[in-house]
Design a protein around this nucleic acid. Structure first.
Lengths: 164, 164
DNA sequence: TATTGTTATACTCTATAACTATA
DNA sequence: TATAGTTATAGAGTATAACAATA
């Protein structure tokens, strides 16, 4: 278990990484903000899926997902097919146009990262990816269906909750 | 130099880490959104500073900084002292009340991270911090006064800009 | 009655531009 | 003329709640 000072520093770095995300967002094509880019990326990586699945992957509320999806659908980058198994549901699928857009996103993002991380080794990038993925898992496991942990216990915590 | 697939994956993870940030934001005290928390944290870590310095550390426009600062100042968590060296400038300083608030932020954040990262080793957390810090530096160096690189060159790029 | 998805509303963060005061 | 900071305005992301259609 890490020390408190480390957790504070990690929180700081998590806050600060927003600047990097904004830099990446700034180079996106017009009409394709970060929310749309995330939708296209996830559809390209995981293939066709329903709204609810996409919302889970995005880790945002389905109302938010609905907005993003409407945006990319309006531009013809995805189509919303009826789900034969459930008429309430809709299957999301990238269109050829969406694939092109996704390629463009990929080119721009890759180019910026290659430029900025020019002095990083392959291994360092891999390490960062691995740790960020694990960080996400450590947080996401209590959201998704996994939930294999019985719920956090605070037996040893005599400290007051300090809930203001 | 890393491969393209790695950069794509890194971009994806950077996008996804937003979920973790939102989780951290949700546990903040009322009246203290993430912007305010960032201001308090940076003042606590770096001591008194001017608006412009804070804006640089936050890596956001000074207009944004001004808003956040106004918010925390209105709640008495910081004071804005005149700068004897420059009447246009203002020195930001945490108040005792601000220090209390900062302690509360620290407790909440640390508690959540300790809970979620319970199975992480001290070394793993340290690695993640180190790599995220370096990532930020790799992006930030072209923003701050450093600017030691002569500017990105695209001599070899025959590819069209594709500025759609 | 519960679930999938949409829409309306509100809040936070951010950037650009116009403006004030001072250097 | 240039810089430090503020304010007005606008755009994007997100969450909650109310709602429609279907399971």
């Amino acid at each position: 278990m890490a020390e408190q000072a480390q957790f504070e520093e990690l929180a700081r770095q998590l806050s600060a990484v927003g600047a990097v995300k904004r830099d990446l967002g700034r180079i996106l094509p017009p009409d394709c903000p970060t929310g749309s880019a995330a939708v296209l990326t996830l559809l390209g990586r995981h293939g066709d899926m329903r709204m609810s699945k996409l919302a889970e992957l995005l880790a945002v509320d389905m109302s938010v997902t609905s907005r993003h999806v409407a945006h990319v659908a309006a531009r013809g980058w995805i189509e919303r097919l009826p789900d034969p198994a459930d008429k309430r549901s809709r299957i999301l699928r990238l269109t050829p146009s969406g694939l092109e857009q996704l390629d463009e996103l990929s080119r721009r993002t890759t180019r910026l990262l290659a430029e900025r991380l020019a002095d990083w080794t392959d291994d360092e990038v891999g390490q960062l990816i691995r740790l960020m993925t694990r960080l996400r898992d450590s947080f996401g496991d209590c959201r998704s269906a996994s939930m294999r942990l019985p719920a956090p216990v605070f037996e040893e915590t005599t400290r007051t909750p300090a809930n203001t």
